[in-house]
Every structure is written in structure tokens, then in C-alpha cells.
Write a protein that binds this DNA or RNA. Sequence first.
DNA 1: GTCTATAGTCCGATAGAC
DNA 2: GTCTATCGGACTATAGAC
Lengths: 213, 213
Amino acid sequence: MADKDEPGTKDRIQAAAIELFARKGFGATGVREIAAEAGVSLAMVNYHFGSKAALLEEILQGFFERMSAVVEENLSGDDPPEEKLRRHLNYVVDVFRENPALARVAIAEMPHEMPGLVELKAQRIGQLAGLVVAQVLPDLPEAVRSNIRLEVLGPMMMGGVALHFMLRPVISQAFGIEFDDAFYEGYADAMTDMLMYGVYGVGRDRDGGEGTG
Amino acid sequence: MADKDEPGTKDRIQAAAIELFARKGFGATGVREIAAEAGVSLAMVNYHFGSKAALLEEILQGFFERMSAVVEENLSGDDPPEEKLRRHLNYVVDVFRENPALARVAIAEMPHEMPGLVELKAQRIGQLAGLVVAQVLPDLPEAVRSNIRLEVLGPMMMGGVALHFMLRPVISQAFGIEFDDAFYEGYADAMTDMLMYGVYGVGRDRDGGEGTG
DNA sequence: GTCTATAGTCCGATAGAC
DNA sequence: GTCTATCGGACTATAGAC
């Protein structure tokens, strides 16, 4: 039952769609274009997915399934909260790096004209955020917990990863940065440090202060 | 020369376009739709702006002009870096709140098919980021400065504002939050605290620790 | 499961009257 | 400066042959 290595038609269509949605946006991408990129005919897209909207929905579901798996894998257990978060962010960055186009579609695409999809995203993001909060927050000291505004911390934490990948072409062009392995070395760790200790805190020796380079 | 209060045709078209681009995306919004929302005919859009793409460009230019003004207004001077940043972020949040649709278009719209616009965004974002870095960074102690990874801090700082406004409909739906004045009370200050002192730091008494409520 | 052909709609842009 | 009418093409989705 399909144990060959090469992807089937449906997978090729989905991969092509992710690439094009990321590059041009959902609304600006035609079904013909997706079909051409996948090397099949127009009719195949609707045969396999039903409609363009349903194709986007399947793509989003796939991304959030993947993210849920990462969250559940890395946030349970008895480690200190900082270690949980560090491990979690490292995996999230990996997921985004594995398929930046998919990440970009999942974050940036917000089709208000399809309330069902907005609700889907709201539900999944809410669920993920709830899991992170539930797994990390209770382990923090009360004095810390009561001073955190989660609705502020949340977008900052997400932004460190999501906005980087959304704006990659712009950042790359503006600062002449290449996003190779070296760039991502310690990226999630630097994020964790910044979140936990802040700008002033990362400059302080905490436990020996080894560099990342 | 047009000292009436009501906006002219061109402004009405631009305002309608911002609203629709924010709601549906640039690619998914038709010129006819923009014209209808503005209460004029299709031909007026091309008469006043030349093309749909040029209309988007003018919108983006307007946003970045506005942001540049805010940056230059708030980041010069001799205040300590933390106060500069705090004031700056407060103004940025205000700009975003004044016209959330414009902010959403400027951040989320990334038309790779129009390299000119991507370059425009790259140039303006690079310029803004450069200004912030130049005005805030040199005033920090050397021990702090050398431990900051700007390419990590940047997206986190932007994310705290930008991602919040991009995902507002989702956040609102997922957590049942209403984004009224009370919600934004102290939002930028909380961001600044988090950036400077981190999760652990905001729980500590620094200078009396007055609450925000 | 894959194709071609096509129906029916909508697109961006422009010509030309006023 | 604003309109209507229209061109040529692209769109999504489906019907029907194989």
C-alpha cells in the first residue's frame, strides 16, 4: 500500500500549494498554478481536495497537528520551567526550519472570508498556548507568576520565531544575512535567555556564562 | 484648496483599500470591491493610483513614513536607554491602535511577485531597525551589549506589537478577550519590562514595584 | 485516477463621453 | 474628476471521456 518513496499526486499538490501560498498568498494563487507546479492537471486539485479552501484547511490542520505533537513531547515532565521552555523553543524552531513555507502559510494566512478557517486557527492556537501556559507557568515561583502578563509575553515568544520566518526575505535583504545552520546555532537558546532574564540579565554572569560561539 | 473636513475621493479609496487588504489580503481583493467600498466607480482607482500595485505601494509608504516619524521623535535625546525604549514602544502601540488595518497590511503583506515592494519593505524596516539600534544600544553597558543577539531580540520586540495586531481576531476568539482601552493600559510598559528584565526579573522588586492596575 | 473542454464569473486596465 | 462600457484574459469548479 504505497510504500514507494516518491510522493503521490495528492502530496505533490499539497507541497506545491504550500510553496505558492507562502510566496504569493492564498488569494493570489490560482488552482491552475498549483496544478502546474505539481505537474498534474487542474482537475486533480479539486478531485483530491474538493476545493481550494479545503486544500488550505488540510494544510493548516497538518501544521497544527505537527505543532501539537512538539508541544506535548517537550513540555511534559518534571524539569524546571526554564529547561522545558528551552527544549520546547528549540523544537519549534526546528519545525519552522524544516518547512518554512508551511510555517509562513499557517501564521500569515488569515482568511476572514472563511470564518471556519479563522475559527480553526483560533482553536488550535488557543489550545497550544493553553498547553504551554499549563506546563510552564505553575512551576514558576508565585512572585514571578503574578507579575507576568501572559497576553504580552505570548506574542513576544511567538514573535521571536514566527515573525522571523514571516519576514525572512525582508530581514535577509535588509541586513544581508544568510539563514544557514550557523545563523540558527543557539537561536532558540538566545530567545529563552532573553525571555527569562531580559536584556540586562543576559549580560550578567549567572552560572559561569559560557558563550554560544 | 480642500480645507473641508470630509476626505476626498483619493483618500476614501485608500482607506477602503486598507480595510479590504487587511481583511482579505491584497491578492484576494478586487479593484471593483475597493471602488464600491469607497463609493466611487472602478475607473477612479486607476485614475488616482495608476494600478492596484501602486495603490499598495502608497499605503506601505504612508505606514513607514508614520513609523519613521515616531522613531525619530522618541528615540533621540539623552534619557537612559530603557526610558527611550519604553516611550518608543508606547508610541508604536498607539500608531498600531490608531489604524490596526494599516498595520496589519504593512506587516503581513509580502508580495514576492512584486520585488519592488519587497525591497521597499526591506529598506524601510532595515532603516527603522537601524535607528532603534543606533539610539538605544550604545547607551547600554558594554557587558550587556556584547551579550545581546540583535537578530533574536528584534523579532521578539516587533512580535510583541506586530503579532498581537496580526493575530487579534484569533486571540480574541481563542481567549475571549476584548481589546478595549483597559486591555492596552500598560501594554507597552509590560513589553519593555519583559524585554529588559525578563520573566524572572519582572517578579523582583526593582524600585518600589508599583502595580499597573 | 487522470485528463480535456467548458461553463460561468470575475479580474485589472483602458477608452471615451461628459 | 467622474462616469459607463468593454476588452482580453484569468479565475474556480465541474462534466464527461478514458
